[in-house]
């Protein structure tokens, strides 16, 4: 009985956690998806207007540390562009090609498009960011979400880490 109650508690807690998430993505085919993350997940914001050197450095860091080959780590690129662009299949593919030119191991299943956009701002979890700006890395471990600017992330400096609500 205790086991069943515990199981129900876990299911309800999980359901609450996901139903409370205010973020929503579309995939490359334009289908709505909720981000359901397990293990350690890294979400890297991507915009074609961002600094290209930053993506090169990020890509090198992920390669050198074998992030792509680690089965306990999920990496997703979160495209943050204006709503009109991401509603267009040609543009979604273009952003994928563009991201893949930096992260060559990226698959179509590893790219999301952030639909939580208002004007020139995007929102992910409780964090608002400019569409144009340096890339950010959202790190999800269990229910804990933190955000680091890419430079701090590749230098593994957690002093400016921002804790966010799931």
């Amino acid at each position: 009985m205790k086991r069943i109650i515990f199981l129900i508690t876990i299911i309800v807690a999980s359901f609450n956690a996901f139903s409370q998430t205010k973020y929503e993505f579309i995939d490359i085919y334009g289908e709505k998806i909720k981000g359901i993350f397990s293990d350690t997940t890294y979400l890297i914001t991507f915009s074609s207007q961002n600094c290209h050197q930053c993506y090169e450095e990020l890509s090198e860091f992920l390669e050198e540390n074998k992030f792509w080959n680690n089965s306990n780590i999920n990496i997703f690129i979160v495209v943050s562009e204006n709503k009109t662009s991401i509603s267009n299949a040609t543009f979604r593919k273009h952003y994928y090609n563009s991201a893949k030119s930096y992260f060559d191991k990226l698959t179509k299943q590893q790219i999301f498009y952030n639909t939580n956009i208002s004007g020139d701002k995007a929102k992910l979890f409780s964090y608002k960011y400019d569409l144009i700006g340096e890339p950010k890395v959202f790190i999800i471990v269990g229910k804990k979400v933190t955000m680091l600017f890419y430079e701090k992330f590749i230098n593994q400096e957690k002093d400016d880490e921002i804790l966010l609500q799931m």
């Binding site: 490359i28 085919y29 299949a89 179509k108």
Partner: peptide, 12 residues
Amino acid sequence: NEFNKAEDKYKI
């Protein structure tokens, strides 16, 4: 509508 959907999928 069907044509547009097929084109979108093709492009992806």
